[in-house]
């Protein structure tokens, strides 16, 4: 279980261009950080570097548990949810099939998926193919896996963009619950998060 995330003096390159350098951040259990910055500053790349996809040019990302540092690969494969611009849903499968797969693949159970379905009000959508869902409905479907399978660190990239005001508030409640349970949230945003969050600016 990840109890804190430490980003130390991180630099990331895209091609020949340095996106940002010297970025540092400490995130502890129960904390949320809103990552802000202009378009192209490297918010997505930072999230992908924390998830282990982008290799940093300098610096490092550490995950710590109750008993000291964790192996980064194990921490990522068992303790990190990444929700990017794309929802990772297959358009030809039904919403429920995709939800159940995403939940079980990330370590949750069928019961957890059913609870998340009720919680995010996905019941009426479950029998529909994903291609028939709107952008906001797809995002809610993708968010359901965060709720259903318990992983400590949520990396969110513009999580609220397609959601309407009521759903944003509802998702704020879910985030607050996650933090109260010892979770960590790092979210790249342009609009403020619906919960109390520290701000970290990238590429300032």
């Amino acid at each position: 279980m990840i109890s804190s995330l430490h980003i130390e003096d991180l630099a990331v390159d895209r091609g020949d261009r340095r996106l940002f350098a010297g970025f540092g951040l400490d995130l502890r259990a129960g904390e949320a950080v809103a990552l802000v910055g202009r378009n192209g500053a490297g918010k997505t790349s930072l999230l992908r570097a924390v998830a282990g996809f982008v290799r940093p040019a300098a610096g490092r990302v550490r995950f710590a548990g109750a008993a000291g540092d964790l192996d980064p690969d194990e921490a990522r494969s068992g303790g990190v949810h990444l929700l990017g611009h794309h929802d990772g849903l297959k358009t030809t499968r039904t919403a429920w099939e995709e939800l159940l797969f995403q939940v079980r693949w990330t370590g949750g159970s069928r019961a957890g998926a059913e609870a998340a379905r009720e919680r995010l009000d996905l019941g009426p959508l479950c029998d529909l193919e994903v291609r028939k869902l709107s952008a906001g409905q797809r995002r809610r479907l993708a968010l359901a896996r965060l709720v259903a399978s318990p992983r400590a660190l949520w990396l969110l990239d513009e999580p609220l963009a397609p959601l309407d005001a009521a759903r944003r508030a509802a998702f704020g409640a879910l985030m607050a619950e996650h933090l109260a349970g010892g979770g960590l949230i790092l979210a790249a945003v342009h609009d403020p998060l619906p919960i109390a969050a520290r701000e970290a600016e990238i590429g300032a």
Partner: peptide, 18 residues
């Protein structure tokens, strides 16, 4: 290609299996 384009490859890379 499909998993790469729709973002599912991210999810697959963060799963329990390598």
């Amino acid at each position: 290609a499909q998993d790469y384009e729709d973002g599912a490859l991210d999810l697959l890379a963060l799963g329990p299996a390598p």
